[in-house]
Design a binder for these strands. Structure first.
Lengths: 219, 219
DNA sequence: GAGTGTGAAGTAATTCACAGCG
DNA sequence: CGCTGTGAATTACTTCACACTC
């Protein structure tokens, strides 16, 4: 408790605020590539589908990055947000589950580009263990705990069937992992201090289904 | 306006409520398979990572499905929620973009199992058009608008690069699509009445990165 | 002037707490 | 009794509006 961490004065940052920051940084990077050098909360809002006040509020949670009357420097603001999100470094990621979704993720460039480095791939299926996906060899999930420690894995991407989720989560948490991206349609239980993000395609489709059922009938 | 729709008395249902319903139904189905026949808001909450009050509130938005003093019938509640979510039918879905993510989605059983039937696949890449993914032939995206009308497509899954998103969105909306599941890291603009759900893996990872950066340093 | 940063006001979501029914 | 269903209280999030700075 001797030091105060960068953006942590016991402020609670909402999930949606973080998602928006993530969106802003993507927009800003696009503008960086186009060579634009300043922008405003108004423009960011317009492009990001939110309001100018929301943009300013989101940013103000972490500091003041703009100049009154002028707006924001595209490059500087992008830097600030990247630093807020902890994107200035590479994260060591292990993928568990080398099925359809798993392999698609592996070959998805976006990960590495944004500093998420998949250092190892595990699967429980003996038929897959020892085989290759992308340029990586699939290891036996039996060695997962050991592997996580040995490789300093910080984030685990879980693309395994629902029933396998909880045991693996328990194991990776025991091995020291504090961040999990879960693709199974089931919320795993984790101790305080471990963050799980669920990505659930079926849930998203079901939300669509609901929306269409609501206002679809009168079309 | 002559008829009142099932669950629409101008009540606003939050996104998170729908997500939770989607989760509840999955839990209930698991319990159905195990042969359990009753449950309580308490149990559902425990399993779904929320609170009993939240469960009851969510359900109360749509009716009263339980018996005081007894709880809920697993099967009946599952039925009710499925009906709320509009899952009692099959939705006709087109996939646009036969890249990594697109093909992984195609071969993902979960979709069809839950009534989302991918009836056609489109891509802009001439090298892919005419080829096969799964058992489907990839069609030229030039015929998308026509195809959507001809096949009665209701939902479009977009797995195309960011810059291609907006034009395709405009087109499919023109063709009458009211629901879009978007995998590109960019929020497309749509008119009132069209629902877009964004699935963004990088955003999820960035949210993890943020969480770990916050409380990771003192580990 | 133009556009940020921010308290204050307003709105939405969650939790509490208990009346009421089986 | 037990557990649901729900108004009322609380908490979180968003929007407003304006003082302040460039």
């Amino acid at each position: 408790m001797a030091f105060e961490r960068a953006f942590d004065v016991a402020k609670k940052i909402s999930d949606s605020a973080i998602h928006r920051l993530s969106l802003y940084v993507r927009i800003l990077e696009e503008w960086e590539r186009e060579g634009r050098d300043t922008t405003s909360s108004e423009e960011l809002a317009e492009r990001g589908g939110t309001t100018a006040a929301q943009v300013r509020k989101d940013l103000s949670l972490f500091g003041s990055f703009g100049k009154r009357g002028l707006g924001y420097s595209v490059g500087e603001l992008a830097d600030h947000i990247r630093s807020i999100l902890g994107l200035g470094r590479t994260w060591r990621v292990a993928l568990v589950g080398a099925g359809r979704i798993g392999t698609a993720l592996l070959e998805y460039r976006g990960f590495r580009e944004r500093g998420f480095d998949i250092v190892a791939v595990y699967d429980a299926d003996p038929a897959k263990v020892g085989g290759c996906v992308g340029e990586r060899t699939v290891r036996d999930v039996a060695g997962l705990e050991e592997g996580i420690r040995a490789e300093g894995v910080e984030i685990v991407v879980l693309a395994v069937p629902g029933e396998a989720v909880q045991p693996i989560v328990d194991l990776v948490v025991r091995a020291g992992v504090r961040g999990i991206l879960n693709f199974a349609p089931l919320k795993p239980r984790v101790p305080e201090g471990v963050t799980v993000r669920d990505v659930n395609l079926v849930m998203e489709l079901e939300a669509l289904s609901f929306a269409l059922s609501q206002d679809g009938p009168d079309a």
